[in-house]
Each structure stands twice: as C-alpha cells, then as structure tokens.
Design a protein around this nucleic acid. Structure first.
Lengths: 208, 208
DNA sequence: GTCTATACGACGATAGAC
DNA sequence: GTCTATCGTCGTATAGAC
C-alpha cells in the first residue's frame, strides 16, 4: 500500500504550504501533521524539493485542463468567464507556488522551464480567444492591442491573488470573483457597445 | 562614528537581499560581505527584522517622494510617464520587498499597515491623476471605469517586475520601460484619439 | 565599536532496527 | 513501510574580552 502514505503526504504538504507558506513548513512539520516519522517521509520522497516537484506536476495537469478551450467554434464571452473561473480556482488551490514563485523557480531549473511553458500556453490561449471574439465582432482590437491586452491579462491572473492577500482579503471566493471582474475590465473597452453594457451589469452584481 | 558601520550594513543588506532574496541571506552573510563580525552587526541592529524595518523606512520615504504629484494644475500624460518611471525605479531598488512581500508582511504587523498605506496612497494618486486627465479632456472614463483602472494599474505596478523576473528578463531598464508601456496600454483605450495615436507611437519606440 | 567564542534550536537528511 | 536515533550544518542571538 505504497501509494496511500505517499498521497497523504502530498495532500498534507499542499495544505500546509498553502496555509503557511512553503518556506515556513519543514519536512518535520509535514510528518508531525500526519503523525508519521520524518524517516518515513524520507522513504517516500528524496527530499523536500521532490515533494514540491510532485505538487507542481499536479498543478501543471490541472492548469492544462483549465486552459482548454472549446474546439471547432470561436470563443464567446461566456467561455471567457468560465475559463477565468477555472484558472483562478487552480491558482488558489496551488497558491503556495505563486506566493513564493521567484524563490521556488530560482532553486529548480526544471520547474522554471515548465512554468514558462504554462505562461506561454496562457498567453497563446488569451490571444486565441480574443482573435475569436474579434472574428465574431464581439470585440474590436488591433493586433498590437491584443498583444498588450494578453500580457496584462496574464500578469493580472498570475498575481491577483497575491494582491488580494496583501490587501487582507480573507474571503477567497470573493477575491476570485473580484479578480475575474478586473480581468473583464481590461477587455471591456474593446467590446461592442451592447456587450460592454451587458458586462457592466454582470460585473456590478458579481463583484459583491 | 556609529553611523558609518550602521549605514554600510544597511547598504550591503539591501544589495544582497535584492540580488539573492531576503530569505536566502542570513545576518552572517551580511557580516561576511562587509568583513565584520556577526557580533558587531548585532551591536548595531537588534535582529534581522530590525534591518528589514530600517530598509523599509528608506523605501517608504522614497516611494512617498515618487508618488508626489504636481500641485496647482491638472496632471498631463507627461506627468504620468515621469511618475511611473520614479515608481518603477523605486520598486526595482527595493525589489526584495516585492519578491517576498507576503512572507515579509506576514511576519510584521507594523510593515503590513505601512505597506497598506502605500498602496492606498498609490490608489488615491492614480484616481487623482485620471480625474485630472478627465477634466482637461485628455481622457474620458466613467467613475466606475476609473475605479477599475486604478486597481489594475496598482496590481500591474506592484507585480510587473516579479513577472519580468519570472519571464527571465535580465535587462532591468528594459523591464521597467516595458512595465510603463503596459500601464500606458491600460489607459490608452480611454484617451482622446490624438493622444492615443501619439501614445502608440511613443510606446512602440519605447518598449524597444 | 569591534572582536572571539559559544549556546541553542531548527532543519535536512541518513542509518539501521523492526 | 515505518520507526527511533542521530549527525552535520546553518541561522539567530548573546556574553564577555579588548
């Protein structure tokens, strides 16, 4: 029954990392939490970095799923809304990565490359969706504007929850909703009048 | 000559923190760098947190200066450009704070309040400038739009250099210029046609 | 003001019994 | 698979001599 303890360790590590920050949680803390010995933990994982890599693996798969886009038709604003939800939920569930992102990536070349790949995928995603919206006339933006917009969406999505944390927002669902509204505000000026009005109505209700 | 060594310690700490991250630099590292003894360092500072607080003090004063706005007349786009430069330079010079912001603030209630105050000041600042631009007809945005815009500008300014770092951008001056351009892109859709065109020309040259 | 020496604890990690 | 025991290293911080 090797998988059992291994999984419990990963689950506990994720929870503790998210709650208290990766740098504040030692392998002993994780073992204590599960009431197993430190030696046992090291039977299942080479070291702390190994645990982080496995959690990153989970995160990567989850984010790849969240970034999937409807095939065979141009995206709608509804799609954007839903996808932002999936992405923000994913970031929330692995927020320890984002909270210490520079430190974590600076220790590990492999994670650096894989995170860069995720950013690239997110960027391509944003581009694709906005080109779809452009084609169907829902929005109107030049190539240069789409380029800048995609970058700003990426930065906002990546760091919004850190910002909410610094601001002291404790209600995670609220923070996520507000993040989505802020991203929508980036897109808003480029929308057709009717869509923009509709969006403003939705946003006002959504942000609380 | 008490001030001499004290200042050298602060200078070295700032440099090492910025280069290698606050959490990776111990008081011993700082003492080693200056070729003084650890005991000497602890003669000048109660502990590591004391050093960080003093650096924060410097940062706070610098940022307060950077956020100063021309008195007695509405802001122009030129003012925005210059002020963004001052703000980004300040963040760059104290980037260790931003890199680990959540950890640093979670350890220290006083810094938490003071950083919140800086954010608040930045937000008020953005509001004021945009209202000025609105009055002179340079831009046209509703109160709600200004509200959302101010928040997005704040997030972008706060985390842009982290984003650039994750992306692997090594040229700091280039990263700062690109950050400014990205902030300008947020504002751009709300500008009068002539100003927007002018901005696009400037931006293209500026981001390199 | 500055040094040397050192106490103390935490952490990462391993050896070896069961 | 899991435990106990333990080692080496490092970081913070202090005592006491100069």
């Amino acid at each position: 029954m090797s998988g059992k303890t291994r999984t419990r360790i990963l689950d506990a590590a994720l929870r503790l990392f998210n709650e208290q920050g990766e740098s504040n949680i030692s392998t002993n803390h994780i073992a204590d939490e599960l009431e197993i010995s430190p030696g046992n933990l090291y039977y299942h994982f080479r070291n702390k970095d190994d645990i982080i890599e496995q959690l990153f693996q989970r995160f990567e798969e989850r984010m790849d799923t969240a970034l999937q886009v409807p095939e065979g038709r141009p995206a709608t604003l509804e799609d954007v809304w839903l996808q932002l939800h999936r992405v923000f939920e994913c970031i929330w569930d692995y927020r320890f990565l984002y909270r210490d992102i520079i430190n974590i990536l600076s220790r590990n070349r492999s994670l650096r490359l894989r995170f860069a790949r995720i950013l690239k995928r997110g960027s391509a995603n944003a581009h694709g969706i906005m080109q779809g919206l452009n084609e169907t006339g829902v929005m109107r933006a030049s190539a240069r504007e789409i380029e800048g917009l995609a970058t700003n969406i990426l930065v906002l999505a990546t760091f919004w929850l850190n910002y909410a944390g610094v601001r002291g927002e404790k209600d995670e669902q609220k923070a996520i909703r507000q993040g989505i509204v802020q991203v929508m505000m980036l897109v808003s000026p480029f929308l057709r009048d009717s869509e923009r009005l509709h969006l403003h109505t939705l946003s006002a209700a959504y942000a609380e």
